[in-house]
Amino acid sequence: MPIWIEVAVSLFLLFGSLFALVGAIGLFRLPDFFTRLHGPTKATTLGVGAIVLGSMIFFSSRGDGLSLHELLIMVFLFITAPVSAHMLAKAAMQQRLPRVDRTRGEPWE
C-alpha cells in the first residue's frame, strides 16, 4: 500500500476516534440532560463518520476495486442521529428533567 494512503487512513482514524472521545466526554461532564444531548448527536456522529471514511479508503486501496458499502453506515448514521436526539429531547421535556439554572427560555409542555 502506498505510504500516502496509509497516512490518510491513519489521519481519518485518529480524527474520528478523538471526536468520539470528545462526544463521550461531553456526555460525561456537561451539567444537565439537554446540554449532554449535544455531545453524542454531533461529535460522536462525525467521529464515527470519519472512521468509516478511513475504512472506505483502506479497503478501496487494496486492489479489489472500489469498496463503497461503508458509505451506507455513514449515511444511515447521519440520517438517524438527529431523529433519536429529537425523540429523546421530547421525552426529556415531557418528564420535566431539571435544567441548569442559567438556561434561558422555556421548554414546551
Partner: peptide, 24 residues
C-alpha cells in the same frame, strides 16, 4: 457540520461554567 463539531468540541472541553444554554 465539520466546523460546528470543532466549535462543540471547544465548548465541551472548555470550562462548563461559562456556557449559557437556552431554549429558543
Amino acid at each position: 457540520i465539520v466546523m460546528a463539531n470543532f466549535h462543540v468540541a471547544k465548548l465541551v472541553l472548555g470550562p462548563t461554567r461559562r456556557l449559557s444554554p437556552a431554549f429558543v
